[in-house]
Write a protein that binds this DNA or RNA. Structure first.
Length: 275
DNA sequence: GCGATCCTGGCC
DNA sequence: GGCCAGGATCGC
């Protein structure tokens, strides 16, 4: 479900968590398949305040004043919601509840359980297997064109759609913003990296940045499941050029949107614009 | 590099 | 009942 703009919006909406003292962590018996042992997570977080929230690609980090951080991936259906006061009974599929000293709570909910809950004890996350394989953030200003192109060139056989979805090359794009970025760069998602010029890869980086920043500006795309940490919707859906518009004109009216399947996922694109 | 696979829920 | 869904890993 959530891509970089959605996770960033959630992060910003949960600024209220900073300084809140965690007194208890309640895990469900059906936590996501990839969950670090609850007792390890408890040991790292319980009885200490939250220092701040960080983001790496689509991962959200809840950093404890103790130094370590809970590393959350929301998968397809994950949701984080702050409650003050919390309800007596939480919604179905709530797998973790952080309870704070003042009675408020943060709930992690994930029906499909594709998400992950893990830990890092280091500042840079290099001790965490998920963060370890992550490439630089697309919106990290320290990521240069040259570096991005070099990282792309390691995968000459990938088509451009698969390239954009690969979090090891650069991180943060998911299916929505991958389609949007390729449209913005006027690049055909079926084209191979080896058939692409350096200037085209550079324009893909720039297009990805603009697509993601626009998503952040509009609070993310609420298509079905996504809400920020306070339960608010994002309006980016109204600004999407091609995603979920099969058979309709692109938002800017430059052509008609087609849907194809790549890597077993829908790609929305406009053949008249993208070559 | 590609397809199958992990899950549940909503919609036709 | 079948198909689809903001994801990513794993085995061939």
């Amino acid at each position: 479900m959530p891509e970089l703009p959605e996770v960033e919006t959630i992060r910003r909406s949960l600024k209220t968590l900073e300084g809140r003292h965690i007194v208890r962590l309640d895990f469900s018996s059906l936590a996501p398949v990839e969950t670090t042992q609850p007792r390890h997570i408890r040991r790292a977080l319980a009885d200490h305040p939250i220092l701040r929230l960080e983001r790496r690609g689509k991962y959200l980090l809840i950093r404890s004043a103790q130094g370590g951080a809970l590393v959350i991936h929301l998968g397809m259906s994950g949701r984080l919601t702050f409650f003050d006061p919390p309800p007596k009974k939480f919604e179905n599929h709530t797998h973790l509840i952080l309870r704070f000293e003042d009675g408020s709570a943060l709930a992690y909910q994930d029906a499909r359980r594709f998400g992950t809950l893990s830990l890092t004890e280091s500042a840079d996350g290099t001790d965490n297997p998920f963060l370890q394989r992550l490439g630089p953030d697309y919106i990290d200003p320290l990521l240069t064109e040259e570096q991005f192109i070099a990282r792309c060139r390691r995968h000459p056989g990938l088509n451009l759609k698969a390239l954009t979805l690969n979090q090891g090359i650069a991180s943060g794009l998911g299916n929505i913003y991958a389609c949007e970025a390729l449209y913005r760069a006027s690049l055909d998602p079926r084209r191979k990296v080896r058939r692409s010029k350096n200037s085209e890869l550079a324009s893909l980086l720039e297009a990805a940045r603009q697509s993601l920043e626009l998503g952040i500006k509009h609070g993310g795309s609420s298509l079905r499941d996504y809400f920020d940490g306070l339960g608010n919707r994002g309006v980016m859906k109204d600004f999407l050029q091609v995603y979920d518009r099969e058979g309709q004109p692109t938002l800017d009216g430059r052509g008609t949107v087609k849907r194809i399947v790549q890597q077993a996922r829908s790609t929305f694109f406009c053949p008249e614009v993208q070559r």
